[in-house]
């Protein structure tokens, strides 16, 4: 075999490997669409569940997931950006920095069911928030922190040093430099991290189990201290806990969850390219 042939074979193998990555995603999406599209209609999206969830719609679960995603964002984003700015711009090599970094690594490694138990202990019971949207948001928010902090810190560190120098040399303070140069330039990367974290939170099941999710609650939450249904947990319930559940409703629910997560990702990449284009570099 000549070197040219070896080269050709290697390139084909590598290309095939890359192509194979696409395959499972396409299969999953197509399969869920084929199985679930039939269930989707106006009633399914807007009605309350009825007849032990075998009829009616999944509106409370959709709304619950949307609310929880917002709640997660409100809890995690300010904390995460603050921590990322601290780590990237202010941290010196001392015990506090080491403690923060250690905490982030460990937070990232904790299984989500453990977050659920932590949320149960800390927010539901100790802070007496009850099984509620606020307890769920706090738990999901903390779970989301590591990925948002890490990606935000990377994005901040990727802003070339010379922009900081220029800003400072024009008489901007360090805080102004961060606010007007560093953060805007890091924004595309920070957005990516936020969306990654939020879409993971939107699809989370185990964490919701003890902190917020209602098994079956055919009404809408009235306040932040109410329980709510949520799509991932609802999916788990109707797929395993309810006898004689029509398959189309199960796959229809999965399809809606998939659409929410995918549209989050889509929004992120649109925002990212637009911000980048405006910045022109």
């Amino acid at each position: 075999m000549t070197r040219q042939q070896a080269q050709k074979i290697a390139v084909s193998a590598i290309t095939a490997a890359a192509g194979l990555v696409v395959l499972p995603i396409v299969l999953v999406i197509v399969y869920i669409i084929v199985m679930g599209a039939g269930a989707i209609n106006w009633t399914f999206l807007t009605a309350l569940p009825s007849e032990g969830m075998t009829e009616g719609g999944i509106m409370p679960a959709i709304l619950g997931t949307v609310i929880l995603t917002f709640g997660t964002a409100i809890v995690s984003i300010p904390l995460a950006i603050g921590a990322a700015v601290y780590l990237a711009e202010y941290a010196q090599d001392n015990w506090l920095t080491r403690a923060v970094r250690l905490a982030i690594v460990n937070l990232a490694g904790i299984p989500s069911i453990v977050y659920g138990l932590f949320g149960l202990g800390a927010f539901v019971l100790f802070l007496k928030l009850g099984t509620s949207i606020i307890a769920g948001s706090l738990t999901l928010g903390i779970m989301t922190l590591p990925v948002v902090i890490s990606t935000s810190e990377e994005a901040i560190l990727a802003v070339p040093q010379r922009f900081r120098m220029v800003s400072l040399s024009l008489g901007a303070t360090k805080l102004q430099t961060i606010r007007h140069q560093v953060l805007p330039q890091a924004l595309p990367g920070i957005l990516t991290g936020m969306i990654l974290g939020l879409s993971r939170a939107a699809g989370e099941t185990a964490t919701l189990l003890f902190t917020v999710a209602a098994f079956y609650l055919p009404r809408l939450p009235q306040s932040l201290f109410d329980q709510t249904m949520a799509l991932p947990y609802h999916l788990y319930v109707i797929a395993t806990q309810v006898p004689n559940m029509p398959l189309t409703i199960q796959y229809g629910t999965a399809l809606i969850l998939l659409l929410i997560v995918l549209s989050l990702t889509l929004v992120a990449s649109v925002v990212r390219t637009r911000v980048r284009r405006r910045r022109e570099w």
Partner: peptide, 19 residues
Amino acid sequence: VAALRRRVSMVFAIPTPLP
């Protein structure tokens, strides 16, 4: 220090327009 840098202003070797 910010006020000092407005009075004594630096231009760097590599032209660096801000975005």
